[in-house]
């Protein structure tokens, strides 16, 4: 029970804390006030509560695959928002009057969506056990451990990205975001395959013997770079396509910032 709760909560918290830590570190690098984090966390939590109330109804949409579609849309949105964020960073920092506010809005929306998605599963999970007190306590302690690990990893990444020089911070931050965004895109594709909206295929490769997705490392890599042990060709092509797109924009972003500074 304990281990399960640790793994479940860790996986969800890790994805959200990764987004938050990288974006807040980049805020620092770009000289943006971090006030937005608190607000977007609140929004995200409210979204998670709302989603967990509405999920029963949402599941019935689209012939029973509403949950997959909603989740996929959220992940697609996060991908697009991260793409937009990188674009905004790539913009000429000289004429920032407009994009300065937009960039904060984009970051806040990304974190809100991320927290909504991840918080929802934790809420549903915890709620299921709230009636059974002794088990609930075990599960809650496991959840706290999982959350602590997730937040600690996020904090470490935050310090790591912040501690680098301006240029390296930018490269590391945008690179991590590109990986996260590509992972989101591939997850969205997977969900649409699960909903039978996209054709399913045989896996392109199977690395589950080498690095199973269920292992701690597998979970970590899943959250960090969207690792899949048995991805289909469609998933892989979207993953690498998205990654490439973001990395290209990121290269422009680093260049334009470098020239500006």
């Amino acid at each position: 029970m304990l281990l399960t709760s640790v793994v479940i909560v860790l996986r969800e918290v890790l994805e959200a804390s990764l987004l938050i830590s990288v974006l807040s570190a980049l805020s620092g690098v770009l000289g943006i006030h971090r006030r937005w984090i608190g607000w977007s966390l609140l929004f995200g939590l409210a979204g998670a509560v709302g989603y967990s109330f509405g999920v029963a109804a949402i599941s019935d949409w689209f012939d029973g695959v509403g949950q997959e579609v909603t989740s996929a849309v959220m992940q697609l949105l996060i991908f697009l928002l991260l793409l937009m964020f990188t674009f905004l960073v790539a913009q000429d920092p000289g004429k920032q009057r407009f994009s300065g506010k937009l960039i904060v809005l984009v970051m806040a929306a990304t974190v809100s969506l991320g927290v909504t998605r991840e918080g929802f599963e934790i809420l549903v999970y915890l709620y299921g056990f709230s009636a059974d007190l002794p088990r609930f306590i075990t599960i809650l302690s496991g959840s706290v451990i999982g959350a602590c690990i997730g937040i600690s990893i996020g904090a470490l990444i935050y310090y790591l990205v912040s501690a680098l020089s301006y240029r390296l911070s930018l490269i590391a931050g945008l690179g991590l975001l590109a990986l996260v965004a590509a992972g989101m895109l591939s997850q969205a594709v997977l969900l649409l395959i699960q909903a039978d909206w996209l054709p399913s295929q045989f896996p392109l490769w199977d690395s589950s013997g080498w690095l199973p997705e269920s292992s701690v490392t597998g979970q970590l890599l899943y959250a960090l770079i969207g690792y899949e042990a048995t991805p289909t060709a469609l998933q892989a092509s979207f993953y690498f396509g998205g990654l490439l797109l973001l990395l290209i924009v990121a290269v422009f972003a680093v260049r334009s910032r470098e020239q500006a500074s």
Binding site: L3, V6, I145, C148, I149, I151, S152, I153, A155, L156, Y159, V216
Partner: peptide
């Protein structure tokens, strides 16, 4: 920072 590293090592070893 220190606390994050400590949490990680302690919790991970406890889980192991």
């Amino acid at each position: 920072m220190l606390l994050a590293i400590m949490t990680l090592t302690v919790f991970l070893s406890a889980l192991h």
